[in-house]
Design a protein around this nucleic acid. Structure first.
Lengths: 243, 243
DNA sequence: CGCGCATTTGAGGACTGTCAACTTCCGTGG
DNA sequence: CCACGGAAGTTGACAGTCCTCAAATGCGCG
């Protein structure tokens, strides 16, 4: 928990007040944690596993973000004591810390340092969403995929890495259908993108970069090695630790 | 300034600390206030006029939100003391209050109530963006326009109202080209949408609603009459008071 | 009155979604 | 250990949506 910037500098009293009311729960894969419109009673902290945040409308569904540890989610709904705007479900077995929303709000009111930490966390989430919208509105599907692959590559040590989720989840995250993702991979083959199952290998990096045109104002910055987990494991180019 | 929930309950000391360092400036129409990537020294508060927030990439540009008074913008960048992810320019003559970011951050650290107010404001902005992404990813252009018109209609008293900005700005906000917006209006004619310049009249409301399928988890809620301006004048279905 | 810009309209093409069939992969159970 | 069933992924054909380019129209301001 202290790995999260949000709780890292919490003083002893606040830390105790929060941990005492919190509890840890293990969920199997494919468990719906929250439906859109649910009232939100807890702040969720993903400690292990993977959680997908989704939105639906008119029988259509889209993945808004895929979270990896350590990440919080639905923080904004907790702060406002409002209903969830996104659904959440585990996509693999996950350990999740659940902190009563009332405890969070009470601590914020009493502890300015904690409230500031929450505000900073929210700001980071907000900026992630801004990046996500720019990614979505300004780029085509192939361009989004190319940039996504370059981000994964930057975190790998070699030029080979694994896609961290199923392709149909990835497709929805990138705003396209699974069929289209398949074709987008095909389109990128001349740019040195070799796919074999979940394994991806990038040769011709320069060509791929010329196509992708990654931009620090859209891509999430590569984490500084100082901050270990939260920043590093960030999943989407755009929407990390969301709510 | 007290009209903003953010500053409404500020105690006298904090209010003075902030207002003393702030200053009011009047900008003509079409003035670039901020470029993407600029370092952000001030929190902006739009008191009168209209401001457009935009994103660019690879010679493409999109409007992310259009703000109307009273709204703050680039709050997230101020909280994190980070560079702007969006550009900002006035689209009509505007009165803007500029508050040094350092003052905001200092007050947050000292005044838990103020930090909580900021966190709540950020949460509202965050949820606006979530709505915006769902609107963008789950709906077609025609559906976005239909819902946008219904939102404007809900704020008008009769069934006739004016589009609040140029059609090319509206097109970009809705994620399409001006040509396509024109055709989208044409597509909606059989649903009782009559356009004459900036004036729009909706007959056949039921038909339009059946097409648009407005959803409280995507559309911004109609404001409660208690809170007068900020909520009411909110421009985009999705992205209000952004940064 | 006339120029310039916003808007509209048309034609064509690029991108993306849908439907259907096929292949591959993987876990279950015999 | 292997066969089977089901889901995931791929491929092809087709349609819908959206963008680009070009030209025409309309409106406002000097």
């Amino acid at each position: 928990m202290r790995a999260l910037p949000m709780f890292a500098d919490l003083d002893a009293a606040s830390f105790e007040a929060i941990t005492l009311s919190a509890f840890l729960q293990r969920f199997p894969a494919n468990t719906q944690l929250l439906l859109e419109g649910d009232t939100v009673d807890f702040l969720y902290v993903l400690l292990d596993g993977q959680v997908e945040l989704s939105g639906t409308w008119n029988d259509r569904e889209t993945v808004l973000a895929v979270l990896r540890p350590v990440s919080t989610f639905i923080l904004a709904a907790v702060v406002l004591d409002a209903e969830a705007l996104m659904g959440a479900r585990t996509i693999e077995r996950s350990d999740i810390l659940m902190i009563p929303g009332a405890a969070i709000r009470a601590r914020m009111a009493d502890d300015a340092a904690f409230a500031v930490a929450i505000a900073r966390e929210l700001s980071g989430c907000y900026r992630g969403l801004v990046r996500s919208i720019k990614n979505q509105k300004l780029r085509t599907g192939v361009e989004r995929l190319a940039n996504y692959l370059l981000q994964l590559h930057a975190r790998a040590n070699g030029d080979t890495f694994e896609l961290p989720h199923e392709k149909r989840v990835l497709a929805s995250l990138l705003g396209m259908t699974p069929e289209n993702l398949s074709r987008a991979f095909g389109t990128l083959r001349p740019y040195g993108v070799a796919v074999n199952g979940a394994e991806v290998r990038l040769t011709l990096l320069a060509d791929l970069r010329r196509l992708a045109k990654p931009d620090p104002l859209i891509e999430n910055q590569a984490a500084h090695h100082a901050r270990p987990i939260a920043e590093f494991e960030a999943e989407m180019l755009a929407t990390r630790r969301t709510a």
